[in-house]
């Protein structure tokens, strides 16, 4: 007998994608690269592995709770474990182009991709770093050389 009673990885992925980062309402944690893996067995026991941007991030518990809540609502899901992994380590390459665009347009936040110069989300001019930390551990503060905008920059 081969009866599928469990939710599929795709179903789970789709609901996890609806969870937004509490610091960036409207931007999915999947697009920010926090989802590492989803495991589900035949009897509906789910393990969702996430990785934090920074290990001391204050949003971890809230994100885990939100992920658990949406997943538990799926039919065929019996038990959900959300696990924060220590490795791999999150880096900005995990941020999708979609999230990069949303961060820029909705929040005027740039993304620091390796050695590339950080460009101002408003006028595309180059920026200079003002301080290594801002309101969040995953963001530095830059100033635009063109329009003087204060550009918070997501970085690893």
């Amino acid at each position: 007998m081969n009866v599928e009673i469990s939710a599929s990885v795709q179903d789970i992925h789709a609901v996890v994608e609806t969870v937004n980062d509490p610091e960036y309402p409207g931007i999915s944690i999947v697009d920010l690269g926090l989802l590492e893996n989803i495991k589900v067995n035949k009897i509906g026991e789910v393990v969702i592995q996430l990785i934090p941007t920074f290990s001391g991030c204050p949003a971890l518990q809230i994100i885990a709770q939100d992920v658990r809540e949406v997943t538990e609502k799926l039919s065929g899901v019996k038990k959900v474990d959300v696990v924060w992994l220590n490795s791999p380590v999150w880096n900005v390459n995990r941020v999708t182009a979609k999230a990069e665009k949303e961060l820029s347009e909705k929040f005027t936040i740039a993304v620091q991709i390796q050695d590339r110069k950080v460009k101002c989300p408003r006028c595309q001019s180059e920026t200079t770093i003002k301080s290594h930390f801002g309101p969040s551990r995953c963001r530095s503060v830059h100033v635009c050389s063109g329009c003087n905008e204060i550009v918070e920059t997501l970085r690893d």
């Binding site: 001391g56 204050p58 518990q61 930390f133 309101p135 969040s136 204060i150």
Partner: peptide, 24 residues
Amino acid sequence: LRHKMSVIAKTQDEIGHAHLLYMI
């Protein structure tokens, strides 16, 4: 520990907000 983490994060947030606001 949980409350401690949240207080640390809030401290960083508020000081960070002040930093941005003083700049503008």
